[in-house]
Amino acid sequence: MIPRETHPGVDEARLIREVRAGHAEAFEYFVRQYQPKITRVAYRLLKDLGEADCAAQESFLRAWQNLDDFREGSTFETWLTRICINWCKDRLKRRRVVLYFHQAPAESDGETGPRDTTPHGDPSPERRAHSREIRERLRDAIETLSPRQKTVFTLKHFDELSIPEIAELTGLDSGTVKSHLFRASHKMRERLRDLSRKA
């Protein structure tokens, strides 16, 4: 989940004004404060740590270069996150072009995933295998979504953001967000139904 921390001691609007006035060193606060969060957002969408780092760095760079476009009414974090999401969507679109040639690096659960925490006591080997299979199928189904559907789905179900928050971050209206969410779920369900028949 994207943490929504407040920093009562720091006036970010004043820092932005300082940066605009030529005090470039004031921008360091934003990098130190938001780099991990932005990287996390990017990683959720891209599933590749190297690309997520690249996305975060590019997002800060774009924010720096387009600081004149930042409106003081919104928060820097929201603006930066929107830049990052747009960057990731572009990357996902390009990745789809070469989908037949490169599969996204799948991480083996034994190395990187959390321990199986099936909710009914100590799981049997069969239940663990079943849980692992569900996770893999869910991941596969998520990878079939379009970049925009994936973005909305990820922000809703993994970052646990509300519809208005997603709308703000993606620049879409709430109705469009709901529509993408519905289509994403429908598409995944269709895919899982197909697998269920094959099983």
Binding site: R40, Y43, R44, K47, P114, I134, R135, L138
Partner: peptide, 29 residues
């Protein structure tokens, strides 16, 4: 319950990848 849990675990797996990075590594980035 397993389906719901699987969704949570996928989200947690992303967190785990980033949680392994040390403060020094973050500082370097």
């Amino acid at each position: 319950a397993e389906w719901k849990n699987a969704l949570r675990e996928i989200g947690a797996a992303d967190e785990n990848v980033l949680a392994r990075r040390t403060p020094e590594e973050w500082s370097a980035v």
